[in-house]
C-alpha cells in the first residue's frame, strides 16, 4: 500500500469493533458509513454537528444540575419522611466509613457525568468559534479516557431496583430530580450513540483545515 505521506493516514479508518481497515469516502450530509464486515457505524457526516452537540450538551448540563439539587425519591417509613439526592447517596457512604465505595460512586455517578458534559460543551463551543486547537485536543483525549466510566444510566436503574425492594415497607414518592435524571440519561445515551469521539476528531480536522485555508 502506497501513501503520499503520513498525513494520508487520516483518510484511513480501522473499525472499532472488528479492526478491519477501511478507506474514508465522502458521504452525503446526514448519512453514515458502515463497516463492510461487521456492520457497525464507522463515521457519520453531519454539517451541523457542532450546533447539535452544543445544544445537547447545554441541555444535558441544565438537567444534570437540576437532578442534583432536588430530591430523587421521598419515602415515608414509620411516620418519618426521608429523601435522597444524588450527592447524598455517596456522602452517606462516607459517613458510614465506606471511603472506597463512596469515592467510586462519587466519580461514577457525579464527577464523570458532569465532567463529560462540561467537556462536550467547551469542546463544541471552541470548535464553533474555531479557537485553541491544542486545548480541544487535550479535551478530546480526556473525554475518551473518562467516557467509559460514566454510569448515570446504571444508577437510574439502580434507583428502581432499590425502590422495588422497599415496596410494602414504605410509602414511596418520586421527586423532581428523578424525572430530570431520566431526561439527563436520555440525552446522555442519545449523545453517546449519535456522536462518537472519532467524529469530533474528524470535525476538528475539518474545521481547522478550513481555518488554515
Amino acid at each position: 500500500m502506497k501513501l503520499e505521506n503520513e498525513e494520508a493516514l487520516d483518510h484511513l479508518i480501522i473499525c472499532h469493533k472488528c479492526h478491519t481497515l477501511h478507506e474514508e469516502v465522502e458521504i452525503e450530509d446526514g448519512t453514515k458509513a458502515l463497516c463492510s464486515k461487521c456492520g457497525s457505524v464507522l463515521y457519520r457526516f453531519d454539517s451541523k454537528l457542532a450546533d447539535y452537540g452544543l445544544a445537547l450538551s447545554a441541555t444535558g448540563l441544565i438537567f444534570f444540575v437540576l437532578a442534583n439539587l432536588f430530591p430523587l425519591v421521598k419515602i415515608e417509613l414509620l411516620g418519618h419522611e426521608q429523601f435522597i439526592t444524588i450527592p447524598k447517596t455517596f456522602v452517606a457512604l462516607f459517613d458510614n466509613g465506606f471511603y472506597f465505595v463512596g469515592l467510586m460512586c462519587a466519580f461514577l455517578i457525579f464527577i464523570f457525568p458532569l465532567l463529560i458534559f462540561v467537556i462536550n460543551f467547551m469542546l463544541f463551543l471552541l470548535l464553533k468559534l474555531r479557537k485553541s486547537p491544542d486545548f480541544t485536543k487535550s479535551l478530546l483525549i480526556l473525554l475518551s479516557h473518562i467516557k467509559p466510566w460514566s454510569m448515570s444510566d446504571i444508577f437510574l436503574i439502580s434507583i428502581l431496583v432499590a425502590l422495588v425492594k422497599l415496596i410494602g415497607y414504605a410509602q414511596i414518592d418520586m421527586g423532581v430530580a428523578f424525572w430530570t435524571l431520566v431526561i439527563f440519561v436520555g440525552i446522555d445515551l442519545y449523545m453517546s450513540k449519535q456522536i462518537h469521539v472519532s467524529e469530533i476528531w474528524m470535525l476538528r480536522r475539518r474545521l481547522y483545515a478550513q481555518e488554515r485555508a
Partner: peptide
Amino acid sequence: PWSMIDVFVVAILAALIHLAN
C-alpha cells in the same frame, strides 16, 4: 459496568433508610 447495580442499590438504601429504629 452493569455489575455496579448492586453497589448503587446498597448506596441508595443506606442513604435512604437511617431512622432511629
